[in-house]
Design a binder for these strands. Structure first.
Lengths: 166, 166
DNA sequence: ATAGTGAATTGGACTTTGTCCATGTCGTGG
DNA sequence: CCACGACATGGACAAAGTCCAATTCACTAT
């Protein structure tokens, strides 16, 4: 996130997506979409959205907060947690819990994909398995549940960790 | 875990599996197996193993500690965490992180299965999908990882929660 | 049966991750 | 440009897990 250094304008000035021309298209779309859903557009939310859109890595809430704070130093942890929670509820961001530690947030919510995580260093990669994992669960194995979603986590050792271990 | 009330004997007496005849077969097997692997058989480890073997639910570490403490009141949380970690390392117990909160421990490590969790109440059921989920990840999608395991979590609403929501 | 020794246990401090709430600020519709 | 209600703040709190020095104890060899 070293690509552009800038400071968000004061909140009292009305900022629209077009005021910040270096936003990637996907994000102004996102912000616009949320605004029409009644989302109030605050500097904090804008910055959180930008951080998520930045690198397509899977950040923890604290990492999001750290990066957001570089753009908007006074942003609070609580706000980051709130905003992430809202984005998840709105279906714009996925929450993945791969290790029982910090939840990670995946901005790539609109393309079906699964995760490949390194048991050593924790890195996560998006992967695209073939076939629909939901289809693998026959009705007789659903116990009356209404199944709405599958989360598949492949675990293994990434190339870097294999190299250092050897 | 109300079925049998008893107190573990003092550690200084040598206790073998056969001293505690009401252990289910599976467990004395487990303990014996671990002992031949060089595991020191302490009262604490014994109790943790018994708790896991008790109901085949998916307990959190704290739940394991609470149940273990009914049998061995002075057992410490650290020991429970240690023991669970060892059992996981030894491959006798599976660790599942379904909700980004507490990790849960699944004693059913020797039969391949996956999990079905209710998004409302958090209940977990073991399910057996058809086919091998590992096979769904083509080599081209592995990015040099050595993939060793897959964890599949189906999410949905259980019958009880569907009923109360309606 | 007993002693020695290194592994296991203890409990308490500490860290990480996340939630809650009262107060104050600011985005937005009018 | 005002008012109002949604949003942000930060600090206290809670939950989940780790770490460590001191102590206890299981196992092996005698």
């Amino acid at each position: 996130m070293d690509k552009v250094q800038f400071t968000i304008m004061t909140n009292s000035r009305h900022i629209t997506g077009s005021d910040i021309p270096w936003y990637p298209d996907g994000m102004s779309d996102l912000l616009e979409r949320l605004r029409t859903r009644g989302w109030r557009l605050t500097a904090q939310r804008r910055v959180v959205a930008e951080v998520l859109d930045g690198d397509h890595v899977h950040l923890t809430a604290d990492e999001v907060h750290a990066r957001a704070a570089r753009l908007l130093p006074e942003i609070s942890r609580a706000t980051v947690y709130n905003t992430l929670g809202e984005l998840v509820t709105l279906g714009e961001v996925l929450e993945v819990s791969t290790d029982g530690r910090a939840r990670r947030y995946d901005p790539n919510a609109h393309h079906a994909h699964q995760h490949l995580v390194c048991s050593h260093c924790g890195t996560i990669r998006d992967v695209h398995p073939v076939g629909d994992p939901l289809a693998a669960l026959p009705a007789g194995e659903r116990f009356g549940f209404t199944v709405s979603d599958v989360e598949v986590t492949y675990r293994g050792t990434c190339p870097d960790c294999s190299a250092t271990a050897a």
